[in-house]
Amino acid sequence: MKYHILAFGAGFLLDQIFGDPYFLPHPIRGIGWLIAKTEKALRSGNPQEDSPEREAAERRQGKLLVAIVLLLTGMFTALILAGAYALYPRIGMVVEAVMTYQILAARCLQVESGKVWKHLKAGNPEAAREAVSMIVGRDTQNLTEEGVAKAAIETVAENTSDGVIAPMLYTALGGPVLGFLYKAVNTMDSMVGYKNDRYLHFGRAAAKLDDVVNFLPARISALLMIVAAFLSGKSYNGRQAWRIWHRDSRKHASPNSAQTESVCAGALGIQLAGDASYFGKVVKKPYIGDPKRQVEYEDIRRANRLMNRTAWICELLCLGILTWVAAGCGWL
């Protein structure tokens, strides 16, 4: 337990300092490769025409995809971690710290959304649209500058839960094995969890599982973000964050996506969401927040500061609880 606590804290600090260097291989890319290869293998031989038989087959294949990816991800992570600890506890701690670092994505989120802010500030909307297309799933080619800024802010807000707080909570609870299992679910949802012709049935199991594993973390993330808004000075409104979260947190097709998005909109005093285009098709969405002022590119940085303060609050709480439990059980 002592090594887990030290590795958990060290992994968070590594993410804060280094983020995700492009020149280094990353396990999440490996999970993405596994998902793509498994999908290709499972789908081979499906009937081409739409039919009830094909729908049923795709649902079975989607469930099998989830099972295979989770089994291989969990086994591979557990074997590496157990092997490292078997060699020497401090080696295991270092490996666990690196794994924890790779599970978290706060710094990466700041860097990628910061590129959008930089291009908007420089008056280069085309480059900003290209940059935001790398971190959102919607069509970006026709977005206005305000639309680009909103897309980046929404991604930062939503991924405060998906990319930072949720994996942190699962890693604190079950170490890198549970952390990487969560990331595998999240990656499957981002790759196959679409409601289009290709993935409506095949991706259903991954999308539903993602909703389940994010249900509590999304709400914990929202509450921690509200606390961060109260502690973050005049640029943020904690009371308004609470009000908008209470009013708008269910205004999304997903039960989880609007949780932190509504808090961020309320804290900044802006309106987010609304209709968006995906694969050339406009999807109707309700607005989140009140348009007290126009969204500006500087709001991207404000959203990132709110995300990072939320991450620090969660990290300190997790370390405190882990230490308290360990001390109470005589594990320290």
Rank of each mutant, 00 (worst) to 15 (best):
Y297E: 15
Y278W: 05
S249W: 13
R239Q: 11
Y194S: 01
W245I: 06
S277I: 15
A228G: 00
R293Y: 12
D197G: 13
N196E: 10
S221K: 00
G233Q: 06
M191N: 07
P286K: 05
W242S: 15
K285H: 15
G289D: 05
Q259R: 03
S262H: 02
W245V: 07
R239T: 11
N256C: 08
I220K: 01
F279C: 08
K251C: 10
I220E: 07
L216A: 14
D248R: 00
A206D: 04
Y236H: 04
E261L: 08
A206V: 09
N214H: 09
K281Y: 11
P291Y: 07
D189P: 01
A228S: 07
T260I: 04
H252M: 03
G203V: 00
Q294I: 12
F279E: 09
P217D: 00
V263L: 08
V263S: 03
I226V: 11
D189W: 04
K281I: 10
G233P: 08
A273F: 06
G233K: 04
C264Q: 10
Q240D: 14
V213I: 08
K183M: 13
A267S: 03
V185E: 00
V227F: 07
P255Y: 01
V227R: 02
L223E: 15
D210I: 02
D275N: 15
V283L: 08
M191F: 11
I226W: 03
K251V: 05
Y278T: 07
R243M: 13
L209K: 02
V282C: 12
V177M: 11
M225S: 15
M225L: 11
V295N: 02
R243S: 12
L200V: 06
G289A: 08
V295H: 02
F230D: 11
V263I: 09
A258G: 08
L200H: 10
H246I: 09
